[in-house]
């Protein structure tokens, strides 16, 4: 969150030949997403969710494509992308591990600090980093809304409750074999 990133005017956007926003996606957005919002900008968040989900990041090229599709300025897209934590410009790992480190998870249970230490050690990366093989991204998250079963962690979209260091270790071992797009 906080401050927008500000690429300079001379920045070169890395490009690949095939577009990120596929014809299929655009057809779906036109049919299902755009009619739900009074302005074209309104459809931006659902569209960004689609791109983030499909590619695990929202590269600059995709932002330009979205801007063109919606008829808005690319800076409007960057403005929104840079604000929300779930949208990332750098590609995330196949499995994003989000350990909750809010009040109940940190202070009232088997501490999230221990879980984060364990994950750091097992994965060999720091919080906010991605492993070299692109399998894991480790992040610390704020309250995941499950304080009664603290401590908790999100593995991609799945919430794991009442964690211990041992449970987290075995979850990480299992997650090593998750393939891109696969469910954990």
């Amino acid at each position: 969150m906080a401050w927008p990133t500000k690429p300079s005017a001379t920045m070169q956007v890395p490009r690949r030949a095939e577009p990120y926003a596929t014809a299929q996606m655009k057809a779906r957005w036109t049919a299902d997403v755009l009619p739900k919002y009074a302005t074209r900008l309104g459809a931006l968040m659902p569209i960004l969710h689609d791109i983030q989900h499909a590619y695990r990041h929202i590269p600059y090229q995709a932002q330009l494509e979205i801007a063109e599709f919606l008829g808005i300025s690319p800076s409007d897209v960057l403005d929104t992308v840079s604000f929300y934590d779930e949208y990332t410009i750098e590609q995330r790992g196949v499995v994003t591990i989000g350990v909750c480190h809010s009040i109940a998870c940190e202070q009232c249970a088997c501490s999230s600090t221990k879980l984060l230490d364990c994950a750091r050690e097992r994965l060999g990366i720091g919080v906010g980093e991605t492993t070299d093989d692109g399998q894991f991204t480790l992040i610390a998250m704020d309250c995941l809304g499950s304080c009664d079963t603290a401590p908790v962690a999100l593995f991609n979209e799945t919430l794991h409750e009442s964690l211990t260091v041992e449970k987290l270790e075995s979850l990480i071992v299992d997650a090593r074999h998750v393939s891109p797009g696969g469910q954990h």
Binding site: M1, M45, F83, Y84, D85, E86
Partner: peptide, 12 residues
Amino acid sequence: EVVLHRSAGAYI
């Protein structure tokens, strides 16, 4: 009409 709108991780 009811629309489900997912946010993207911002307490504010």
